[in-house]
Amino acid sequence: MSLRGLSPRFWVAAVLVAFVVLVGLIGPLIVSTNPDATVGGLYEEPRCCGPLILGADNEGQSVISNLVYGTRTSLIIGLVAGLIGTAIGLLVGLVAGYRGGWIDDVLSAIVNVGLAIPVLVIIILVSVSLPKRNLYTLALVIGFTAWFWVARAVRAQSSSIRTREHIDVAKLSGAGFWSILRRDVLPYLLSYVVMACILQISGAILFESTLSMLGLGASNTTSLGTMLYWAIQWGSVRTGAWWAFVPPTFMLTLIVFSLLLLQSSLNEVFNPRLRRGRAARKKAVKEGTELGTPIEAGDAGPVGTEGILESPVSAGRDR
């Protein structure tokens, strides 16, 4: 894949994601104020330069410092939960789809049950039952409950790959079960898995903020969700203290929007059929590349189709 094939949309998304990651990584180094230290009065207004550049929250803590640390927390939770969820979903989907038979039946039944029960319900029930909640337990809970749709999508694709000829060749050459999965099935799904992972990360960040706003957030760490929890609890929206709730709202929106934009632009790269027919063809002819695209796309039928059918819908759904 050459860089020239990437749409402007991809670059916009990549820059936004990079910005968010920078805020989470470098922000806490630049803003040296302790997010738990009281530096001002109740909802003190923003004033230039120093820890109060975005004002103070309901406990007189610096909003800018809470914001950068909160961004970091949200990113950590999203990354940990997203990776766990994708890994479990990938493993279950691969095994179920490639193995088939009763293993497939059992795993698919579990996945279908899991899909039918709203994820938030399970997460709420587990979090309420936990004696202590911190950053990582929250990430684990989200990761271990929100993987079902990944498993279903991966299963659909790997079961279509199972019937292809190169799998027979691999079997005849004596490759083992896991080796076939890793070297002959997984590469066909890789683009899809990357996109699913991005969706999982943004979903996990949203789940975290939803849980925190309901009062089930991590008790010892600031996250964007807990900032909003306190802002709403103390009526900052009503009193007009915009600096308490606009920054975390903006940051969350930016994170989720940039991740979804990244996913959808990658989707267009990986699924040529999603590109607008005429424009894409014209472009291909003009550049003199990708002339084989229509045939290849047709050949990749089952995988491509599944990817399209699953991803745009579940993108909106999974939250």
Binding site: V246, V256, L260
Partner: peptide, 18 residues
């Protein structure tokens, strides 16, 4: 639409309320 659908629902609610 992409922007609207990726804005967390509560974020839109907070901004509208304000």
């Amino acid at each position: 639409s992409l922007f609207l659908s990726s804005v967390p629902p509560f974020a839109l609610a907070i901004i509208l309320l304000f």
